[in-house]
Simulated scan of single mutants.
Amino acid sequence: MRSSVIRSMGAVGAATYKEWAAYRSHMAVSLLVGPVYYLVQYFIWQAVYEGRDTLNGLTLDEMLAYFGIAAVIHYLIFDFADWNLQMLVRTGKFVTFAMRPMPHWLFALSQKLGHRTLGFWIEFVPIGLLFLFVFQVDLIPAHPWLAAASIALSFMMNFLVNYCVGLTAFWLVRAEGIRRVILLLKDITAGVFVPLSFFPEAMQKVLFFLPFQFITYVPTRVMLGEYELAGITLSAGEAVLMQLGAVASAWIVMLLVYRLALKRFTGVGV
């Protein structure tokens, strides 16, 4: 049974890889996003740090490294499960997946694996080289294996959160608005726009218990070699263990919401 699931996931991933490879020019456009985002942050923080050596314990070089690493990680964990699932529900095409032996969440995860495998060559490698040799961002992690594990867990957490967002389509007639709001809040509380350690201390305590920090903030801090939030300092290994527990919990929540969504889907006679 397990081997058949792995073969099915491999087949879906390979099909997604080939499908997107035919339209790889669409993915190539995203090559502009990371560098432009980094340059904007570069000029902003150059101005903020003028006359200062450190800010919230971070030097200018560390701050720029944070945004450079976060931008590069984005190319590895990018996810579209929320949009894809809501489109299937809105158009009624989800009914075809409800009758398949493979649960849709596993199908969606397989799609993401195929999509990001292609993205690794088209997006991550060239952007990584650009940041490393042109922008002089140190992308060599302090603990390579821990960093790899943290990015893999970030990959899963981003999928689980986005998939749960997509599941709201089973309860909402028009879920696009709520999807956009949730995804914006997700990016803010994940540390995409500013490190979470820059938020007020009371807010940091709230952010510490939310799952979003494990998407961007945690893997970026693990890459830098240490973790600090809400007055809590952890080693890279401890941060990864905390991240593993958070992903396991998010997975359980996703499965529960998925079952409720299927009951609602079949309950209305679709």
Rank of each mutant, 00 (worst) to 15 (best):
G269P: 14
G51L: 08
V218F: 02
T233M: 01
V181E: 10
V165P: 10
T59D: 02
G128W: 03
T117N: 04
W20Y: 14
A14G: 11
L76M: 14
I140G: 06
G269T: 10
L106V: 10
Y17V: 06
V89K: 12
G51R: 05
L139Y: 06
L210P: 09
P144D: 00
G114L: 03
F133H: 13
F67D: 08
R24I: 05
L88H: 11
E238P: 06
F133D: 05
A190F: 03
V192A: 07
P126I: 00
A149P: 07
G177C: 14
A14Y: 09
A147M: 04
A142K: 15
I215T: 08
A169F: 02
M87W: 04
L55M: 13
V181I: 14
A152Y: 02
Y66N: 01
L118V: 08
V240C: 05
G13E: 08
L196Q: 02
K112N: 08
L172Y: 11
S30E: 11
A152W: 02
A15L: 14
E176F: 10
L146Y: 04
L55V: 02
A108G: 09
V161T: 06
A15V: 11
V253M: 11
Y227L: 01
M102Y: 01
Y23R: 15
I6L: 15
A248K: 13
V247K: 13
L185E: 01
Y75M: 12
G68V: 07
E226H: 10
L262A: 03
L196R: 03
G92P: 06
P126V: 04
Y49M: 09
P144Y: 00
E228Y: 02
A169G: 07
F131Y: 10
V95D: 06
T91K: 14
N56I: 00
V125Q: 10
A81N: 13
L185K: 15
A65T: 12
G225W: 03
V240G: 08
G269I: 04
A148C: 04
Q41D: 02
D138G: 12
P144A: 01
M157F: 03
Q243T: 04
V206E: 01
H115F: 11
M9V: 13
L234R: 09
A246Q: 07
L184A: 15
L39Q: 12
F80H: 13
G191R: 08
M87Q: 09
R7E: 06
P126G: 08
Y258W: 03
V247T: 03
V194H: 02
Y163I: 00
L118C: 13
L262S: 05
V257Q: 04
S4P: 12
V137W: 01
G114I: 00
W251N: 11
G225H: 04
